[in-house]
Design a protein around this nucleic acid. Sequence first.
DNA 1: GTTAATCCCTCTAGCAACTAGAGCTTCAAG
DNA 2: CTTGAAGCTCTAGTTGCTAGAGGGATTAAC
Lengths: 147, 147
Amino acid sequence: MQSIGKLSDAVGVKVPTIRYYEQIGLLPAAERSSGNQRLYGAQTRERLAFIRHARDLGFTLDAIRELLSLSDRPDLPCAAADNIARRQLQDVRRRIARLQALQDELERMVVQCGHGTISDCRVIEILGNHALCTDEHALAEPENARG
Amino acid sequence: MQSIGKLSDAVGVKVPTIRYYEQIGLLPAAERSSGNQRLYGAQTRERLAFIRHARDLGFTLDAIRELLSLSDRPDLPCAAADNIARRQLQDVRRRIARLQALQDELERMVVQCGHGTISDCRVIEILGNHALCTDEHALAEPENARG
DNA sequence: GTTAATCCCTCTAGCAACTAGAGCTTCAAG
DNA sequence: CTTGAAGCTCTAGTTGCTAGAGGGATTAAC
């Protein structure tokens, strides 16, 4: 059994974050030592590694909760988990496309800098102008919850 | 001059969000009608459109504040802006790299999913197992402030 | 010219997903 | 057996919004 600090080091999730995950029910309430300190076994460590990895990949805690509940019932069809992944993939592709456009503009700006003033740069114009957006971007539904 | 509601519809930013941007100083204090309601002209509308797109691209409000400080002073020599632009570009490149790794992994998941039950599905396994990560992903520095 | 619907106002409180700090207890190394 | 790190609980702060209460303004219909 590991202390919370060792678990933190092993998995790469900060101590308060682990406690937070327990608090919101993503991790089960940990066993306690005689002195009331949390103790973790392999199972919880794996679960935490799963959570950490999914967070790194941009999954919300709600999506992770969903995935974890699925993994507890492996007899269900795969489609549910697949749907979550597909939704994430769509979002990621959209973000990459937009960032690519911005990267192009910023690169051009940096190149052009040194030959004039900011007013020559098109970054502001590009970002302010709907007409210059890609179709994908222009049609994007209102985005939220990126907090 | 537009009411806040029309502006909201035109730009695709919710009314309370516009007021919030004013509150934190991203937008100037709006003109008011005789009845104390906010009125907006083309200039603020463009500024808001800029903010919206930059947010869509994943920039923090602080980064946007910086970019806006460029457009607020287009007479500055590019040398002054060069630094900011380069830093933003670095950030964009890092973002793209991370998202690309994420995209690859999600694509792999979706391909491998789709037959059978969750027990056959590798989404859970892939997310739980660091060894299956791409190098890029495995080496990613801890991400934060996504909340 | 009034009434109803719909906007708009300010203010406070809440969300996700943490993070930081205070003030105290427990553990492990020397 | 001390001392310093690590743990505990609790509260409050962060970012970027979002929702609601309780009221005033504007507009469209009658």
